[in-house]
């Protein structure tokens, strides 16, 4: 089952396309990181998935074909918006009770136990809790709904390192215990490297790359070798990022030594390393940064659907 399935999704605000040509199919059981700079369209996509915004073009289905925003979709999706909005003048216990009364499925004992574990005083007004506690309260309310898909929009931005870790640990345990799928948007990837096993990179409103972390990591390499041969390599492989020493366009630098090039390329599992070149594995962060910096790909469909290329071989 795909928890998220979009086809040609687009959203226009007046004259600006906040999201366009967004085609994704994210299978269940993953923690998908949705990364991109501010204004890349992350919140727009997340709002559409949560049923808060209506797309201008394209189709969107969640949880195996339920229309986003439909009652069936809302029953199975818990959404925690940016800045963890809670009613500031209501107590944590009130928030639990209110959420319980607005959902057909709600695990109130779990919510109460977790608040106790987190040392969040049930009677204290939510507005007086620390940023970390508010985030944990919002997360507790979301998890107590026992969702199939948990959508978190920039949940870590306002948290200190310890609170981030606790927050992520809670999400990861919910994945282990309940099999909940997670979509987490963030503009900082470094801390997601350990938790995300699916990556969607969004830039300028368009997905640049999307796929399971393992597939992306095995499907990409950094090739390091003489800059003089870089063009020949680039002609045969699909280069995501091309870094050459400043003198790279002359075959020899002033001192006569060969200048170096690093090419981040997409490779098949059995592609040989060109003679004289060294291949290094990439990290998820490196990969995401490369796609965020890369010029628009002439053939983005290949990147988005590596399986399609496999199938056509």
């Amino acid at each position: 089952m795909n928890v998220i399935e979009t086809l040609g999704l687009g959203k226009r605000y007046r004259d600006t396309w906040a999201l366009r040509d967004c085609t994704l199919s994210i299978p269940e059981g993953h923690m998908a990181a949705l990364v991109g700079p501010n204004g890349a369209g992350k919140s727009t996509l997340v709002n559409i998935l949560a049923g808060l915004a209506v797309p201008t073009t394209g189709t969107v289905a969640v949880l195996g074909g339920r229309p986003a925003g439909s009652p069936a979709a809302l029953d199975g999706i818990a959404y925690m918006a940016q800045d963890a909005p809670v009613y500031k003048n209501l107590s944590a216990a009130d928030m639990v009770h209110i959420t319980g009364n607005l959902n057909r499925l709600f695990d109130e004992p779990y919510a109460k136990r977790r608040l106790a574990e987190l040392d969040i005083p049930p009677g204290k007004k939510a507005g007086r809790l620390s940023g970390g506690q508010q985030a944990q309260l919002a997360l507790t309310l979301a998890l107590a709904r026992r969702p199939r898909l948990l959508i978190l929009d920039e949940p870590l931005a306002a948290l200190d390192p310890l609170a981030r870790r606790d927050f992520l640990a809670t999400v990861m345990v919910a994945m282990a215990d309940d099999g909940v799928s997670v979509l987490l948007s963030s503009h900082a990837l470094a801390e997601l490297e350990r938790v995300a096993d699916y990556l969607v990179v969004l830039r300028g409103g368009e997905p640049r790359v999307a796929g399971q972390a393992d597939d992306l990591l095995t499907g990409h390499r950094v090739l390091t070798g003489p800059a003089a041969e870089a063009d020949a390599i680039a002609a045969r492989a699909s280069v995501v990022q091309d870094k050459r020493a400043a003198s790279g366009f002359a075959s020899r630098s002033a001192s006569g030594s060969a200048s170096q090039a690093h090419l981040l390329v997409r490779v098949g599992a059995d592609d040989p390393v060109p003679p004289g070149w060294e291949a290094h594995p990439v990290t998820l962060e490196e990969l995401a940064l490369a796609y965020l910096r890369a010029p628009a790909d002439p053939n983005p469909q290949d990147q988005l659907h590596p399986e399609r290329i496999e199938a056509s071989r």
Binding site: G29, H30, M31, R165, D166, L168, A169, M172, V173, M175, A176, D177, R194, V195, A196, D197, D214
Partner: peptide
Amino acid sequence: KVRDVVAGLAINPNTVLK
């Protein structure tokens, strides 16, 4: 146990399973 590793290290359960 997978769950204990996940809780202790805050990592993806799929990573532990792998």
